[in-house]
């Protein structure tokens, strides 16, 4: 059939498009690398340090075991993030911090709380609740899946 198709269109303009996109890639402004790396470093460092301080506090004040103290520290960080996201401060930190604010557990908590706040306008059930994990979903799904695989491997090893 002599109908135009998308593949045909791409094939015909391949050379032109490659030339253009390569040029665009060349002239598009990049993140100012050194500055953003430095920002990511100190903001990420401070968040981890805060985690450690909270961990030590929980451990010393309530004389808890390492595992529980670690969980308490993470929960505290999550609480702080949810609060900062709500008052609209977290995205300003993230503007400078980049990887520094989203790699720690704060990024994960922000992804969930920002989605919850955003979709509240469609109601509690179909908005807030059903869009809860739109952004953080991949982390949870892949996390549970990979933990299952690890469990499976250990189970099989344990059989012998």
């Amino acid at each position: 059939m002599d109908m135009p198709t998308g593949d045909q269109f791409k094939q015909q303009n391949k050379v032109r498009n490659k030339k253009y996109t390569d040029y665009v890639e060349l002239v598009s402004p990049k993140q100012t690398t050194w500055k953003s790396l430095l920002n990511a470093f100190w903001i990420g460092g401070v968040i981890c340090l805060l985690g450690q301080v909270l961990f030590d506090l929980a451990k010393i004040l309530f004389s808890l075991s390492d595992d529980i103290a670690q969980t308490i520290a993470l929960i505290a960080l999550i609480f702080i993030t949810a609060l900062l996201t709500g008052i609209g401060v977290f995205d300003k930190i993230a503007y400078y911090g980049g990887g520094g604010s989203f790699l720690p557990i704060t990024g994960f908590a922000n992804a969930i709380s920002s989605a919850a706040i955003e979709f509240k306008s469609e109601g509690i059930i179909f908005g807030l609740s059903s869009k809860f994990y739109t952004i953080a979903g991949p982390v949870i799904v892949n996390g549970i899946l990979s933990s299952f695989i690890v469990g499976l491997i250990y189970y099989i090893i344990g059989l012998f």
Partner: peptide
């Protein structure tokens, strides 16, 4: 803690800048 945490975040930042991966993929 400060240095290691910072360096991991720098690694994530490098991935953002260099590879155009979306943040969900990097996580």
């Amino acid at each position: 803690v400060f240095i290691i945490g910072g360096l991991l975040c720098v690694l994530a930042e490098i991935l953002i800048i260099k590879t155009k991966l979306t943040s969900a993929r990097i996580l």
